[in-house]
C-alpha cells in the first residue's frame, strides 16, 4: 500500500499548523483584523463628514511627507541644481551614487559621515537596549509591587518627564567635567538610558496587560520572583518593550543637544552633530559642495528609523493575553 496509509496519523493540531503556510497565516490575520474593525459606514456619520475628515487626514499626511519626498528627489542632484532646478522634480546630471560615495569621504576636513552614522547606531542601540531593560524592571516594579516610598519615587519620575534636557545643559556639563564624562561615549549613553517616559509607559502597560492573578498563580506554583519576572511577566511585556525600544532608540538617534555639549572630538560625533557642523561650513563657504551631502546624509539618517518601525510593527498586534482568563 502507499506510504501515507502506513504512517501514524498526525495529531489534528499539528496537521493543521503544518497545512497553513506563513503567507496564509498572514493573510488570515489580515482578514481577521479587517473583520474586527467597524466599517466607517456604521459609525453613523454622514458621507460629507467622512469625506471632509478624510481630506483633512490626506492634507496632514502630505504636509508631513513633503520634506521626505523633497529629500529623495534632491539627493540625486548637484549642488547647483538643488538651488536652481524645480524642487519637486529630477534634474540632470544624476548624482545619487556619487554623493552617496562621498558620505564615506572626509570632504572638508570635518570627518566622514560614515563615522558619525556608526556612532549614531552605537549610541542609539546601546542606550535603547539599556533604556528598555531599565524600563522593564522599573515599570514592572512600580506596577506590581507595593513598597515604602513608591508613590514619592514615581512622582519624582514623572517630574523628570517634565524637565527638558535643554534646561539642564549647563549643570550637566559641569557635572560631566568633574566626573570625566566629557568626550566619553558613556557620557552620551548613560543619560540616554534613563527615560522617564518609557518607565511610565511600561508601568501602564504592565498594569493593563499582566493581571495580578497571573503572578499570584505563578507564586502558588512555587516560582521565585526572578523566575516569575523572566518566565511569566517578560514574555507578556514584549509588545510594550518593543514600543519602548523603538522610542528610546529614536530619541537617542535624533538627539542633538546632548552630544553637542559633551563631544568636542569630531570622530565621536553622531550624525546629527556632524551634519550640523557641515551645515555651518556650507553656510560659510558656498563652494564645498556640502549641500548634496547634507541632503543625502539626512536621507540615510531617517531610513533606518523607518525600517525599524516597519520591523517592530508586528509586535504591536494585541491579543497576547488571549486565553489566560475565563472569557
Amino acid at each position: 500500500m502507499s506510504a501515507p496509509a502506513l504512517a501514524p496519523p498526525a495529531p489534528p493540531d499539528q496537521a493543521q499548523a503544518r497545512a497553513e503556510t506563513r503567507r496564509e497565516r498572514k493573510r488570515r490575520e489580515r482578514l481577521e483584523e479587517r473583520d474586527a474593525t467597524i466599517p466607517v459606514e456604521l459609525y453613523g456619520l454622514r458621507q460629507g463628514t467622512v469625506t471632509l475628515l478624510t481630506a483633512c487626514c490626506v492634507l496632514f499626511a502630505a504636509f508631513t511627507l513633503v520634506p521626505i519626498v523633497w529629500m529623495i528627489i534632491n539627493s540625486t542632484k548637484t549642488q547647483a541644481n538643488i538651488f536652481s532646478s524645480f524642487g519637486f522634480w529630477f534634474a540632470r546630471p544624476f548624482e545619487f551614487f556619487h554623493t552617496f560615495a562621498n558620505l564615506f569621504r572626509d570632504v572638508d576636513g570635518d570627518g566622514t559621515y560614515a563615522r558619525w552614522f556608526y556612532n549614531t547606531v552605537l549610541y542609539s542601540v546601546v542606550s535603547g537596549v539599556g533604556a528598555t531593560v531599565l524600563a522593564a524592571l522599573g515599570g514592572y516594579g512600580f506596577a506590581r509591587f507595593e513598597f515604602r516610598g513608591a508613590r514619592l519615587l514615581f512622582a519624582v519620575v514623572i517630574a523628570g518627564l517634565l524637565v527638558p534636557i535643554t534646561l539642564v545643559v549647563v549643570p550637566l556639563y559641569l557635572v560631566y567635567a568633574k566626573v570625566h564624562l566629557i568626550n566619553s561615549i558613556w557620557g552620551m549613553i548613560m543619560p540616554s538610558m534613563v527615560t522617564p517616559i518609557n518607565l511610565y509607559l511600561m508601568r501602564t502597560f504592565v498594569e493593563l496587560s499582566i493581571p495580578r492573578e497571573l503572578l499570584d498563580a505563578a507564586r502558588i506554583d512555587g516560582a521565585s520572583e526572578a523566575r516569575i519576572f523572566f518566565r511569566v511577566a517578560l514574555p507578556l511585556m514584549v509588545p510594550g518593550l518593543m514600543t519602548v525600544l523603538l522610542l528610546s532608540i529614536a530619541a537617542t538617534w535624533n538627539n542633538y543637544i546632548l552630544p553637542l555639549i559633551i563631544f568636542s572630538t569630531n570622530n565621536l560625533f553622531p550624525a546629527t552633530v556632524g551634519m550640523g557642523l557641515w551645515l555651518q561650513h556650507a553656510g560659510n563657504s558656498g563652494d564645498t559642495n556640502l549641500f548634496p551631502l547634507l541632503v543625502m546624509g539626512g536621507l540615510v539618517t531617517i531610513i533606518p528609523m523607518i525600517a525599524l518601525f516597519a520591523i517592530l510593527q508586528r509586535y504591536w498586534r494585541g491579543g497576547l493575553l488571549l486565553g489566560s482568563a475565563a472569557n
Binding site: 492573578e213 499570584d216 498563580a217 502558588i220 521565585s224 507578556l236 497576547l320 489566560s324 482568563a325
Partner: peptide
C-alpha cells in the same frame, strides 16, 4: 510562610493560565 513554601494548589476564578 510565603506561598511558594506553603505548597498549596489553587484554582483561580479567572483561571489565570499562562497565555504564552
Amino acid at each position: 510562610i510565603s506561598p511558594r513554601q506553603r505548597d498549596v494548589a489553587m484554582v483561580f476564578q479567572n483561571y489565570a493560565l499562562y497565555p504564552h
